[in-house]
């Protein structure tokens, strides 16, 4: 058995592992319940809320990631290593701890001031977006930086010798050149936000028709021992997630070649 076959075997084993997990759901699958659960107002709300909050969080994270990734990729500045290291914070602490940190922040005077004068975050749908944004920002920045590192600085230098300002060189040359990496950063951030649970539930709670995202809805169903309902929600979430990622991947193949 040569290396090629062994590696392909491992790739299929990975696929099989996840496929078995999905297929095992079908043991508890009841067709009638599927449509009933899917079309229920509460489930539709969760789907809408999840997609909306994940999209907003991923857009915000990517938008913030682009300038900071540029600084990390192109510039040397005091504290660069500190910034680079702290990007991993959401991965180092557990999501629940991250949610707890957010909750604690909004209970200090400054956080309280934001809550009273600005937007409400604790036990609010804004909290979902914030929790997902904080969770995905590090990943988005890391991936965007990796994409920018791939683009030689030389392109920008030459663009500037041709008369482009630093900003124009960035927007006309570097940004279009790393669009694939940027798209990947957005997609992964979105997927991570869609599945985010720990930080979301800690900060926003589990209020039905208010802060109940799909992962939270799954948790709520399971906690009431509603296995059939849980299976249906997991299938819905899997279908949305995989369907979206696969579609984006197809579009990427056609239109985002660098």
């Amino acid at each position: 058995m040569n290396l090629r076959r062994v590696s392909i075997l491992f790739a299929f084993s990975t696929f099989a592992l996840f496929a078995v997990l999905v297929l095992s759901l079908l043991y508890f699958y009841r067709g009638g319940l599927f449509m009933e659960t899917l079309l229920s107002e509460r489930t539709l709300f969760s789907i809408r809320l999840s997609i909306y909050s994940a999209t907003v969080a991923a857009v915000l994270a990517t938008a913030m990631a682009v300038p900071s990734a540029y600084a990390l990729s192109r510039c040397n500045f005091p504290g660069k290593d500190a910034v680079d290291t702290i990007l991993e914070l959401p991965m180092l602490v557990s999501p629940a701890a991250l949610g707890a940190m957010l909750l604690i922040f909004f209970n200090n005077p400054f956080g309280n001031w934001i809550q009273t004068r600005g937007a409400q975050f604790v036990f609010d749908s804004n909290g979902i977006i914030l929790a997902q944004f904080v969770t995905t920002l590090g990943v988005a920045t890391r991936l965007t930086k990796a994409a920018m590192d791939e683009i030689p600085q030389r392109y920008e230098d030459v663009a500037r010798t041709l008369g482009a300002s630093p900003a124009a060189a960035f927007f006309n040359v570097t940004l279009p050149l790393c669009r694939r990496g940027l798209a990947a950063a957005f997609i992964l951030s979105w997927a991570k936000a869609m599945g985010e649970f720990g930080a979301t539930i800690t900060l926003a709670g589990t209020m039905a028709m208010k802060t109940e995202t799909l992962p939270i809805a799954i948790f709520m169903k399971l906690s009431t021992a509603d296995i059939d309902g849980t299976v249906v929600l997991i299938l819905i979430m899997t279908a949305i997630g995989i369907g979206t990622l696969y579609t984006v991947r197809l579009i990427g193949r056609k239109g985002l070649h660098a």
Binding site: P152, R154, Y155, D157, V158, T161, A164, S165, P176, A258
Partner: peptide, 19 residues
């Protein structure tokens, strides 16, 4: 600044914009 110097530059790798 570089863009105000009015000097064109052709580097060794040419740096033609691939997009």
């Amino acid at each position: 600044p570089l863009e105000k110097r009015n000097i064109s530059y052709v580097p060794q790798d040419l740096a033609l914009f691939p997009h």
